[in-house]
Amino acid sequence: MDKLKDNYTIKLRCATCGSDNHFEFNEDKSYIKCTMCNREYFRGIEELKELNEEMFDKVKKQIEEDAKSYIEDELRKALKGCKNIKFR
Rank of each mutant, 00 (worst) to 15 (best):
V59P: 00
F87I: 09
K33T: 14
K60D: 00
Y41P: 00
K68G: 03
E74M: 15
N21V: 09
C37S: 06
Y70M: 04
F23L: 08
Q62L: 06
E24W: 14
N26I: 08
D73N: 13
I63M: 07
I10T: 12
D57E: 10
S30I: 01
K3V: 13
H22K: 15
V59A: 01
G81N: 12
K61L: 12
K29P: 01
E65T: 13
R88G: 13
N7F: 12
E24D: 10
E50D: 09
D73R: 13
D57M: 09
K83S: 11
Y31L: 06
E24L: 11
D20K: 03
D6L: 08
E27K: 04
N84Q: 15
L48A: 05
I85W: 06
L51R: 09
G18I: 09
L79H: 03
Y70W: 05
D73H: 10
E40A: 07
E27W: 05
D6V: 08
E72K: 15
L4K: 15
G18D: 03
E47R: 09
F25K: 08
D66P: 00
K5H: 09
I85F: 09
E46L: 13
Y8C: 01
I45A: 01
K86N: 06
S30Q: 00
F56R: 06
F25W: 05
K11G: 03
C82R: 14
N84W: 15
E65C: 08
M36D: 01
E54P: 01
R39A: 04
C14S: 07
S19H: 03
K58Q: 11
K86D: 01
Q62G: 01
M55V: 11
A78C: 04
D20E: 05
E24Y: 12
V59E: 01
F23K: 09
E65H: 10
S19K: 08
N52R: 06
L51H: 03
Y70Q: 10
E54D: 07
V59S: 01
I32V: 15
E27H: 04
A15G: 04
G18P: 05
F23P: 04
R76W: 08
D66M: 00
M1Y: 15
D20M: 02
N38E: 12
E50W: 06
K5M: 02
E54F: 08
C14N: 05
L75G: 00
M55T: 13
K49H: 02
Y8V: 05
I10P: 07
N52P: 01
G81F: 12
K11Y: 11
M36T: 03
L51V: 06
L51Y: 07
K68Y: 12
N38K: 14
K33R: 15
R39W: 05
F23H: 08
C14I: 11
D20P: 00
Y41S: 03
E53Q: 13
E64Y: 12
G18W: 05
K11I: 11
M1I: 15
L12F: 05
L48G: 05
I45V: 11
Q62N: 06
C37H: 10
